[in-house]
Design a protein around this nucleic acid. Sequence first.
DNA 1: GATGAATGAGTGTTCATTCAT
DNA 2: TATGAATGAACACTCATTCAT
Lengths: 195, 195, 195, 195
Amino acid sequence: MRKKEGNKEVAILDSAIKVFAEYGYHKSKIYKIAELANVATGSVYVYYDDKEAILRKIFDQLWDRLYLQLKSVHENEHLTSIEKIDALIDILFDIFLENSALALVFVNEQFQLIQKAPEKFTDSYNKFLDLGEHIVQEGIDTKLFNPKIDVKIIRSFIFGGLRHLLHQWAHEPALYPLHTIRQNVKFITKNGLLK
Amino acid sequence: MRKKEGNKEVAILDSAIKVFAEYGYHKSKIYKIAELANVATGSVYVYYDDKEAILRKIFDQLWDRLYLQLKSVHENEHLTSIEKIDALIDILFDIFLENSALALVFVNEQFQLIQKAPEKFTDSYNKFLDLGEHIVQEGIDTKLFNPKIDVKIIRSFIFGGLRHLLHQWAHEPALYPLHTIRQNVKFITKNGLLK
Amino acid sequence: MRKKEGNKEVAILDSAIKVFAEYGYHKSKIYKIAELANVATGSVYVYYDDKEAILRKIFDQLWDRLYLQLKSVHENEHLTSIEKIDALIDILFDIFLENSALALVFVNEQFQLIQKAPEKFTDSYNKFLDLGEHIVQEGIDTKLFNPKIDVKIIRSFIFGGLRHLLHQWAHEPALYPLHTIRQNVKFITKNGLLK
Amino acid sequence: MRKKEGNKEVAILDSAIKVFAEYGYHKSKIYKIAELANVATGSVYVYYDDKEAILRKIFDQLWDRLYLQLKSVHENEHLTSIEKIDALIDILFDIFLENSALALVFVNEQFQLIQKAPEKFTDSYNKFLDLGEHIVQEGIDTKLFNPKIDVKIIRSFIFGGLRHLLHQWAHEPALYPLHTIRQNVKFITKNGLLK
DNA sequence: GATGAATGAGTGTTCATTCAT
DNA sequence: TATGAATGAACACTCATTCAT
């Protein structure tokens, strides 16, 4: 009996990220993904129900990782709210620095997927956002951040700003060193949040 | 939508915005657009070369309008840099307040389109961004804004933040009144830019 | 504007009968049907929703014709029950004599189709059977036929016998002249029904 | 169905009959058959060359049994031709009474299979038909049956009638008790054959 | 210009069959 | 024998685009 190596499942996912990044979800062909993963077309369907399931899995994994990292930051009692916001930004930058194709997929496809069936979207995503919101609220409560701001709106604003920058960077990494982007984001964010 | 006698071209474009907003570009069918515009499928091709040309036209018009408005703001010598940034934000909010379907299309499809062939993307878009950048630079030069910031990065950050907020609003207008979003954005932006 | 010629719809149906007869429904390919009808594959879907709709249409037309003919026979008051049974047999033989491919499709595919969703099967089929049953009952009531027989069972028996013979004939027309088959069927049927 | 230890071959065949009966041959999946037989998909191919071989085996066994029974009837010198015809009908009814799924498979799939390669179809089938024909001929020779009838045609007619009734019964056993069907068939058959 | 019937290239998915273990 | 992961050929159906009228 042949055993599932488990490698194929991962290989398919990695290939999918690359193919989705290059062509966009809709123009990505299953046979391209299979080809790049060195498996047969049909094998894709051994591990994933359909094309969308692959995309969904990509985001599941992504947000699981991001949430766990942010959670560990948040549970560190030695950090101020400011330092936690700093860490949040670092977490996002680091994961995409590691895999720029993933950044492209994230920016280009998450909206469409989440819009289709928000309730089916990975729970870690909402947990991540909630935690981010919580951190901002903590900053307000501890008089570090300006009470005038609406946490949900600011959360979205920062998130969107980061998303856009990461997209540009993923698309043209040479244009700006990531650390410069990072510094600027931290600067504007903090100075905007501090009283 | 009622057929606009003698102006099928506009009717098609308006219908396309609605259909693209509802289904996303890739899942939008030409016959749906034609139907909503009360014209025959074939008529779409009388006015537009292909499906992508419709999308391109939507962005052309959008950025033309935005650029012209920002230009007029910028040419007003009575405004400070801060007031110009305020006006920039207002311009963006107002146009999407007027047409939320357009906001959705903008947020969901611009990336994909611009990525495909950046050089073919409407020139007004770049002009708009350059002008925004210019305004920020002016603020730095006049000692209003912090010189530490990189104008291009900050420009993208704010732009992305706005984009994301508009998307959320377009998708669920009831969640937040646009004016609250607007206030918050202005607040964080200004406090982040000012020394 | 191109006008639907109406010929294509018929051409596709005729081709489908031939292709279904030769390969069986499941092994028949849409492109084969289109090819034989001298139309493009896509044109098949201009006229029919899907593959099954073609098969369904074939039976709709078949049973509509058969029912109308039997109805006209039944309404002829000069005929005895025996003569009506004779006519019923003739009707079936004649229609398949005219189109032997249709006979094959009928024999091979009707069961599967009717089994899938009996309630969606053409109404004319049930009307035809009911009328056949009615004629037999009339024969019993007028003391021509044996009262011991159960009309529904006998109806099915004769129907199945005819079906099988027609199938054999359609498959190997040379084996038996249709008129010999017809005579024998009439003979056994009548002698079985008469007291 | 419970796994029959040491007799996977039989378990697969029994499962196949049920699955073919429920879904029809073409829509039956090998993995469904394997699942029902409590064996792995691959095991099916240990015992059968391919999907069609399973169907072929079902008919082989069926006709072997039927032929052997009819042969034994025919060799009984105490029976008249009429009694032999009676017995023939009983044989058919009894085997399907015992296994109604088999009846469905027989009715739905035999045509397609036999049509594809008549020469490869089980020999017992032809032997059975020939013996049936022989019995009718005997009846004619012994002046019991009407000499006008063509034995081959009548054989097919009766066979088809039975087939159709069995199909209806297998599909809706509650509609008619099998013994009523049996009586009616015997009645019409005999009265049609006797002078 | 306007129409909508006609086109046919293109692809996600299925599933019978194979084969390494 | 037995397994079930892996395969890849096959196909129904879609829909952007064309073009005869």
